[in-house]
Amino acid sequence: MSFISVENVKFSYDEDKNYVLNGLNLKIEKGEFVALLGHNGCGKSTAAKLLNAMFIPDEGVVVVDNMITSDEKLTYEIRRNVGLVLQNPDNQLVASVIEEDVAFGPENLGVPPEEIRSRVNVALKMVDMYEYRTHAPHKLSGGQKQRVAIAGILAMKPRCIVFDEPTAMLDPNGREEVMNTIQVLKELGITVVLITHYMDEAVMADRVVVMDNGNILTAGTPREVFSQVNLLKKHSLDVPQATELCYKLSGVGLKFDKMPLNTEECVEFLEGVLK
């Protein structure tokens, strides 16, 4: 059984059954890093909130580690296991001191004080914000705030973290900080689900799932997905420039064993051809 499994899920925000998700099927394994792509309104943010029992499916089931999200008794156990980091870092921080904010989750769970203290310290060190523990959130940069938000989730000791466009409001430095943090989490064995618009972030994932119109358009390894340049362009999704160039070159007869996804791979490939 997969760690998270979404089975034939339909979900709508209104009574008229305008389904935002229309029979979605998705399986996520323990320790996996999955990127969810798709443009606004394709249902990916809705999917995120279904994974931690913020939303309950109208039809179908979401099962997290053998717990069905529609079982109200399990709601908080599921949320502890599946943390959710949202887009706007400002609106996720509750307290006016960083360490107290990070303590908010474990406090809600009734963890004993000494253990909260050690969890907070560990979490802040993991996101490299320990020296800011007594600062006020509004003095931090966007990337720093988002890292504090991640620490707040980490302090609940989750097994999976879902990121809903965590970098959309950040500048390039902030994006890099957050993406580095996400990679650290993956190395620690935490399951990561990353919802994003940025292809260069999706490239880091083990598996990419492209959504459109409340369902899955295509899925696979980043290389498999981004090789389908035409399909992605048709659905107005970005393709890394490196991949686009190579895709065009394949049109004039160049052969590819594996589609280059970043600058280095592209340069290496072209050098190989030219030699």
Partner: peptide, 20 residues
């Protein structure tokens, strides 16, 4: 200065640096 250039510019520049 902590900025990037477009990916495509970077690829061509790297190829130039390698003598192409």
């Amino acid at each position: 200065m902590g900025l990037r250039v477009p990916q495509i510019t970077k690829i061509i520049t790297m190829l130039r640096e390698r003598g192409y």
